Amino acid sequence: EDEVKKIVKRLIENGVDDEQIKEIVKRQGVDERIVDKVLKELK
């Protein structure tokens, strides 16, 4: 989960929008619920 957080944070800093972040992270095989949780925490 910490790995996911790092990735998502980097994507947000690069101006990637939420939908794209979800797609990218899902392609890495991460559960969507984890992605949603991380996005909420970082906003």
Score class of each variant (00 low, 15 high):
Asp18Asn: 09
Lys6Arg: 14
Lys37Gly: 04
Lys9Ser: 09
Asp31Arg: 03
Asp2Arg: 07
Glu32Gln: 09
Glu3Tyr: 14
Glu23Tyr: 08
Lys37Ile: 07
Glu41Cys: 05
Gly29Thr: 02
Glu13His: 07
Ile24Trp: 10
Leu39His: 02
Val30Gln: 04
Val25Asp: 00
Leu39Gly: 00
Val35Phe: 07
Asp36Trp: 07
Asp31Ala: 09
Leu42Val: 07
Ile12Tyr: 12
Lys6Trp: 11
Asp17Arg: 10
Lys26Leu: 14
Lys9Ile: 12
Val30Cys: 05
Leu39Tyr: 03
Arg33Thr: 12
Ile7Gln: 08
Leu42Cys: 03
Val16Ile: 14
Arg33Asp: 13
Leu39Trp: 03
Asp31Met: 05
Val35Thr: 05
Lys5Asp: 02
Glu19Asn: 10
Glu23Phe: 08
Glu13Pro: 01
Glu41Gln: 11
Glu13Cys: 04
Leu11Arg: 00
Asn14Phe: 12
Asn14Tyr: 12
Glu41His: 06
Arg33Pro: 04
Arg33Gly: 11
Lys37Met: 09
Asp31Trp: 03
Asp17Ala: 13
Glu13Trp: 08
Asp36Ser: 09
Lys9Ala: 12
Gly29Trp: 03
Gly15Arg: 04
Gly29Glu: 03
Gly15Phe: 04
Asp2Glu: 14
Arg10Ala: 15
Asp36Leu: 13
Lys5Ile: 12
Val16Ala: 09
Glu41Met: 11
Lys40Met: 13
Lys43Leu: 11
Lys6Gln: 13
Leu11Ser: 01
Ile7Ser: 04
Val4His: 01
Glu1Leu: 14
Glu41Ile: 09
Ile12Met: 15
Glu13Tyr: 09
Val25Leu: 15
Asp18Ile: 15
Glu41Gly: 06
Val25Ala: 09
Gly29Phe: 04
Lys26Gly: 11
Asp2His: 08
Gly15Leu: 04
Lys43Ile: 07
Glu3Trp: 15
Asn14Glu: 15
Asp36Lys: 07
Val35Asp: 00
Lys5Leu: 09
Lys22Ala: 05
Glu32Asp: 09
Leu11His: 03
Glu19Arg: 09
Ile34Ala: 04
Asp17Glu: 10
Gly29Arg: 02
Glu32Leu: 11
Lys22Val: 09
Glu23His: 08
Lys40Gly: 08
Ile24Met: 10
Leu39Ala: 01
Asn14Ala: 15
Glu13Met: 13
Lys22Phe: 10
Lys5Thr: 07
Val16Glu: 05
Glu32Met: 12
Val30Asp: 01
Asp18His: 12
Gly29Asp: 03
Asp18Trp: 15
Ile21Gly: 00
Lys5Cys: 05
